[in-house]
């Protein structure tokens, strides 16, 4: 298996190496949870926004974002997508999922904020919703494309 850049921090013994990886992962998850809770507490309306809370939030985004980026680009999400047909089918599924996300996002926003009264409010509602759905589609598409490429390389000859 390809080694990661973190290999230089790990012991040569494979049992110890695996244990260390678990410990590091546990620590990262606990840190992410702590940062998330801290960011929530310090940014609630009661206290107003805080710089430390924002920093904690950004750190949380980095922690989770790093894992997501590595996971997506390693092409290990869609392990069974090999043929062109299944690839096209999955592409449609991703599109459908993104549309469902868009609808859910819009409905949730309307429930929380109410029906938009004017054009500006409507744009404020549609803008982030569409942006989030488009981002979701392209992110999943990248993951699918990477997985498809990787699986094709590993296919039966």
């Amino acid at each position: 298996m390809d080694k990661s850049w973190i290999s230089f921090l790990l012991p040569d013994d494979e049992y110890k190496e695996k244990k260390m990886l678990y410990f590091m992962a546990e620590s990262a998850v606990l840190l992410a949870v702590a940062l998330f809770i801290y960011a929530l507490i310090t940014n609630v309306e009661l206290y107003g926004s805080s710089e430390t809370g924002t920093l904690a939030g950004l750190s949380f985004v980095f922690l989770t974002g790093y894992v997501l980026v590595r996971y997506t680009f390693s092409g290990i999400e869609y392990t069974d997508i090999v043929g062109h047909n299944s690839y096209q089918k999955e592409k449609k599924t991703i599109l459908f999922r993104s549309l469902m996300f868009l609808i859910t996002f819009l409905v949730a926003s309307i429930i929380l904020k109410g029906i938009p009264a004017d054009m500006e409010e409507l744009l404020d509602l549609l803008g982030p919703s569409i942006l989030a759905a488009v981002f979701m589609y392209f992110w999943n598409y990248i993951s699918l494309k990477r997985s498809y490429q990787k699986n094709k390389d590993l296919l039966d000859d």
Partner: peptide, 9 residues
């Protein structure tokens, strides 16, 4: 997963 078998092979 199939990918794992492919990687082993």
């Amino acid at each position: 997963t199939r990918q794992t078998i492919g990687l082993i092979e």
